[in-house]
Design a protein around this nucleic acid. Structure first.
Lengths: 175, 175
DNA sequence: TAGAACGTTTAGTATTTACTAAACAAAGTA
DNA sequence: TACTTTGTTTAGTAAATACTAAACGTTCTA
């Protein structure tokens, strides 16, 4: 026999796994899962109750989930508890996440490729002509690749509405 | 004054950072970086030399780099050393990576969402009519999202040749 | 103003991860 | 057969990460 809690628990565990796969804490996926199968917004204490995590863990994970646009704070009048509800439009969350990626560690790292390339093109170092040409060619190819990815994410994050239709039209192009 | 090694070292460090950002070991990025700026394939011992890592670390990282299609083994006749060279077509590597993703932990996790949904639709548990409908709706939306992602990656990995042109046409659609 | 109700931050801990050092395996060479 | 040369695997370690427990700060209420 399958109970209500078993069904929900199975789902929540699945969300934990997905979270982990994408490099986020398991707890984050679990918190999102709980909120996603709840018809009403839940408070921190209710999340403590339903996940078994401590308030501290809930607090920090809820903050990053909010930053990623995967959940939203909800305030009730005459109630100073914070409540949270899951975002149901995942495409919207994807946009938020991609936008937040800007100016991050990623850009900093990519910039070092740009720097190396600039050094080479400015004639710095003492490479012989052939090696310099080789290195410039390689670094340029790499930068083109990064630029393509960057353009892709920029384009996605700038769409007014990234819905299932857009995704399907992209898939059609790819096929 | 900027020396040859400084320029290369700066690049290699950048690749370490990028590797780390994407959730891979820093060492992996460094190894790839070294191979990418080398005009000739390098042996394990040469990689030990140029990265400062131990043979063990090189061995394991080289293996996963090879699986991801980011580098390739090269064998020379009458020489039982293994040499490695960097793949220069990154779009090809992306395909390899996406292909390898199949049947992974990700699919397993996603499957648990499928299971939960199936339980609900089979009438398992003792949810009242309204709650069951609510849960089914939510889980369906989530599964649609995952399916879209899945289709997207499948489409990409099935392309005969994923080049800069394809990427640019996708970007055009998105804009 | 004292106390209660919340959420956040911090100090410490357990777990995971990526590495080193060294043993090991395989396969050629003397 | 013993010895070299190569790459892999393993046992142990150092560092990073994600959590718990508890202190703390803030804001509302009596």
């Amino acid at each position: 026999m399958t109970t209500n809690t078993q069904i929900k628990q199975n789902f929540i565990q699945g969300m934990s796994g997905i979270s982990q796969f994408w490099g986020f804490p398991k707890a984050m996926g679990a918190i999102f899962g709980v909120l996603y199968v709840s018809a009403v917004p839940l408070s921190l204490d209710e999340l403590v109750e339903s996940t078994g995590l401590t308030k501290g863990a809930i607090s920090t994970n809820v903050r990053t989930l909010t930053r990623m646009g995967l959940i939203h704070p909800v305030t009730k009048v005459a109630d100073r508890k914070d409540y949270y509800e899951a975002e149901t439009d995942f495409y919207k969350s994807v946009q938020t996440i991609l936008k937040g990626r800007q100016n991050s560690e990623f850009d900093r790292a990519i910039n070092s490729v740009k720097e190396s390339l600039a050094s080479l093109e400015a004639g710095e170092g003492s490479f012989d002509k052939k090696e310099r040409a080789f290195l410039i060619e390689r670094l340029k190819a790499l930068q083109d690749f990064f630029d393509a990815i960057d353009n892709m994410t920029r384009a996605i994050s700038k769409l007014d509405r990234l819905g299932i239709n857009t995704v399907q039209s992209v898939i059609k192009i790819l096929k």
